[in-house]
C-alpha cells in the first residue's frame, strides 16, 4: 500500500500489473443543494491479484460508494481506478464491456437484485448469452444449443449449492428463500469466471444460520475458483472470516489498512479501536469499560484535519489542522493517524 496522497506526482510509477485493482486518489462528491458531501475523499487502496480486501465501516463511511466505483457503476469526481494496469474510467464501448466480464457485483438485497419476472435460468444465463464467444473460449467448448446452455447454468447452480441445479432452472425468484436468492445472484456473478467479485453486505439481510451457509459457500468458491473478493461490510467478524486484508473507512477516508489479523488484534487507529471494542461477543460485551462517544455531527465534508478529530480521545492541534496520511507503520499495516495506538 503506497501512500499517494499529497504527492505531486503519482500514477505510472505506482501502477503495476501486480495489482488487480487500484484506487488512486478517488474522490466522489454527492451534492445536495449547496452541501458537498465527500462520500470518498482521496481514497488510495489496492488489491493484489488473488488477494481479497474487506472494506469495513459504519453507515455513511463511503464503503458502498467505493464498491460501485470499483465496478464502474459510479464515476468518481477525480482519481483513477486501475484494473490490471488500465484506467477503467477511460474505457468505452467494447473495452468497457470486456472489463465488466472481469468484475462482478453481488448486492445486499437478494429480493431486489433479481428480476421477479425472470426465471433463475434467464437471470443466470444472461451474462453467458451476452458474451457467448468469450464464454465459449473460456470453457473451451461450443455452447450452441439451448440444452447445452441449460446444462451449463445447472452446473453453476450445483456449484453454488442449489442441488440439483436443473430443478431450479425454471423457478421464479418468489419461490426462493432469501438464502437461495443470494445463491442465484452469486451464480450469476460467477458465470463468466470473473477475477474480482465485489460483494456489498451479501449476508446482512439473511438470518444467522443462512448467512453461515452463504459465507461457507463464498469461502469455498473463492478457494476453488481463485477469484478476488472485495467484501464490503459493517461487520468485522465476517470480514475477517472472508478476507486476508482489511481497510477501515471513516467518513469517506481510509483510516487503517493491513492484514485482517493485524487490524483486529492490534488496531492502531483510535476509531478502529472503538469499533472493535464495541463489537459484541457470544457471552456479552467485549469490554465493560466506557468508550469515547463518537459524534460525527461536527463533520462537514472535505475537512482539513482528521475526520475523527472531534470524537478522538487523543486529539491534538495538528489533528484539526492537517490531514493525516495513510502511512505504513509496521510491515503491511498502515494507519492514517498522528497518534497511532501502540500495542
Amino acid at each position: 500500500m503506497e501512500t499517494l496522497i499529497n504527492k505531486d506526482k503519482y500514477g505510472q510509477d505506482y501502477v503495476s500489473r501486480d495489482y488487480l485493482l487500484q484506487f488512486v486518489d478517488i474522490t466522489k462528491i454527492f451534492k445536495s443543494g449547496h452541501v458537498r458531501n465527500y462520500a470518498l475523499d482521496k481514497v488510495n487502496l489496492s488489491i493484489k491479484a488473488g488477494d481479497s480486501l474487506a472494506i469495513v465501516g459504519e453507515s455513511g463511511s463511503g464503503k458502498s460508494t467505493l464498491g460501485l466505483v470499483a465496478v464502474n457503476l459510479l464515476k468518481p469526481n477525480s482519481g483513477k481506478i486501475m484494473f490490471e494496469g488500465n484506467d477503467i474510467s477511460k474505457l468505452r464501448g467494447s473495452a468497457l464491456r470486456s472489463f465488466r466480464r472481469y468484475t462482478q457485483m453481488v448486492f445486499q438485497d437478494p429480493y431486489s437484485s433479481l428480476n421477479p419476472y425472470n426465471t433463475v435460468y434467464q437471470s443466470v444465463s444472461a451474462p453467458m448469452k451476452a458474451n457467448m464467444a468469450y464464454y465459449e473460449s473460456l470453457i473451451g467448448e461450443k455452447v450452441d444449443s439451448r440444452d447445452k446452455q441449460r446444462a451449463k447454468v445447472a452446473e453453476m447452480l450445483d456449484m453454488v449449492g442449489l442441488v440439483p441445479g436443473e430443478n431450479f432452472l425454471d423457478l421464479f425468484p418468489k419461490k426462493l428463500s432469501g438464502g437461495q436468492r443470494q445463491r442465484v445472484a452469486l451464480a450469476r456473478s460467477l458465470m463468466l469466471r470473473p477475477k474480482l467479485i465485489v460483494a456489498d453486505e451479501p449476508t446482512s439481510m439473511l438470518d444467522v444460520s443462512i448467512s453461515a451457509q452463504v459465507l461457507n459457500l463464498l469461502a469455498r468458491l473463492k478457494r476453488e475458483l481463485k477469484f478476488s473478493i472485495m467484501y464490503i461490510s459493517h461487520e468485522l467478524g465476517t470480514s475477517n472470516y472472508i478476507s486476508e486484508n482489511m481497510a477501515v473507512m471513516n467518513l469517506g477516508r481510509v483510516v487503517e489498512y493491513g492484514p485482517s489479523e493485524e487490524i483486529t488484534s492490534r488496531p492502531m487507529h483510535p476509531y478502529t479501536d472503538i469499533l472493535i471494542k464495541s463489537m459484541l461477543e457470544v457471552g456479552g460485551f467485549k469490554t465493560e469499560e466506557p468508550l469515547a462517544k463518537i459524534d460525527f455531527s461536527q463533520y462537514n465534508g472535505g475537512m482539513v484535519g482528521c475526520t475523527f478529530a472531534h470524537s478522538c480521545p487523543f486529539v491534538t492541534d495538528v489533528c484539526l489542522k492537517q490531514r493525516p496520511l495513510l502511512e505504513k507503520v509496521d510491515g503491511d499495516h498502515s494507519v492514517a493517524c498522528f497518534h497511532p495506538l501502540s500495542h
Binding site: 444467522v208 453461515a212 451457509q213 469461502a219 467478524g237
Partner: peptide
C-alpha cells in the same frame, strides 16, 4: 451458536449451517 462468526473464527473454516 455454531453459525455465529466472530473475530476468533478461523478464516474460511466450515461454519455449522442449517
Amino acid at each position: 451458536l455454531g453459525s455465529i462468526v466472530t473475530l476468533s473464527t478461523e478464516r474460511g473454516k466450515n461454519l455449522s449451517s442449517l
